[in-house]
Simulated assay, not measured.
Amino acid sequence: MGVLYWIIIAAMFVIAFAGLVFPIIPSVVFIVAGFLLYGFLFTFEHYSYMFWIVEGIFTAVLFAADYIANLLGVKRFGGSRAAIWGSTVGLLIGPFVIPVAGIILGPFIGALAGEMIVHKKDIKTAAKIGVGSLIGFISGVLAKSVIQLMMIGYFLWTVLY
């Protein structure tokens, strides 16, 4: 049964990584679900207050990384709040409107549309801001990947050693 339990816990972590490219999937929820499943299926004995504090800090950094990466990507290329909001909306609906490419095109198109509609920017300037949004998104995915790996690594270190 232990192997089956570990497969279920690992599945939670895999789903969390899917959430990096499908933002509708709440990555942190699945990572914490993996932690809680371990506790319920095996034992909570390994979890100290320090474990929850460290994982809580990782969680806060995870949320901040997503927001900051998008903000810096858009701002660095001259974008406004309209581009940030457009990028966020594009990120959420892009994968549903354009199934595979929507995860990349959604933030770009959203930022482009936000700048063109709200601030009446020309297509060239808006496209440059859209590229900034895309760079911010990719940077955020990379940063969140590292943070999630650290969260899972700390969990494994805690329960296995």
Score class of each variant (00 low, 15 high):
113 A>Y: 05
84 I>W: 09
53 I>W: 10
35 F>S: 07
159 V>M: 07
105 L>S: 04
22 F>G: 01
2 G>E: 15
67 Y>V: 14
113 A>S: 04
84 I>M: 12
135 I>S: 09
20 L>E: 14
147 I>T: 10
74 V>N: 11
120 K>S: 08
77 F>E: 06
133 S>G: 15
17 F>P: 07
66 D>T: 04
33 A>Q: 06
52 W>E: 14
41 L>T: 03
95 P>T: 00
124 K>Y: 02
95 P>R: 00
31 I>C: 13
156 L>M: 15
150 M>T: 03
54 V>I: 14
150 M>I: 13
122 D>Y: 07
69 A>W: 08
158 T>R: 04
59 T>W: 00
49 Y>H: 11
101 A>N: 07
30 F>G: 05
94 G>H: 05
107 P>I: 01
89 V>E: 02
98 I>Y: 00
62 L>G: 10
155 F>A: 07
90 G>N: 14
48 S>N: 00
133 S>A: 13
66 D>I: 06
37 L>Q: 10
124 K>M: 10
89 V>D: 04
116 M>K: 02
112 L>A: 05
131 V>K: 02
10 A>T: 12
68 I>M: 08
43 T>C: 12
67 Y>D: 05
36 L>M: 13
81 R>M: 05
138 I>G: 10
139 S>M: 06
132 G>Q: 04
19 G>M: 06
52 W>R: 08
113 A>K: 03
136 G>K: 03
132 G>C: 00
161 Y>N: 12
138 I>C: 04
34 G>S: 13
112 L>P: 01
78 G>V: 06
35 F>W: 10
87 S>A: 15
62 L>F: 15
35 F>L: 04
66 D>R: 05
119 H>G: 01
108 F>N: 02
133 S>F: 02
5 Y>L: 12
143 A>G: 10
120 K>C: 06
52 W>A: 13
81 R>N: 00
35 F>K: 07
94 G>Y: 01
58 F>G: 00
39 G>D: 05
130 G>W: 02
98 I>M: 07
16 A>N: 12
16 A>K: 04
16 A>F: 13
108 F>Q: 03
129 I>A: 08
160 L>V: 15
30 F>R: 09
13 F>S: 03
65 A>G: 14
138 I>H: 00
24 I>V: 07
32 V>Q: 01
161 Y>S: 05
94 G>Q: 08
90 G>F: 03
15 I>E: 01
154 Y>W: 15
118 V>A: 11
40 F>E: 11
57 I>E: 09
2 G>M: 11
156 L>K: 08
27 S>G: 15
29 V>T: 14
7 I>Y: 06
116 M>W: 12
84 I>S: 04
18 A>S: 09
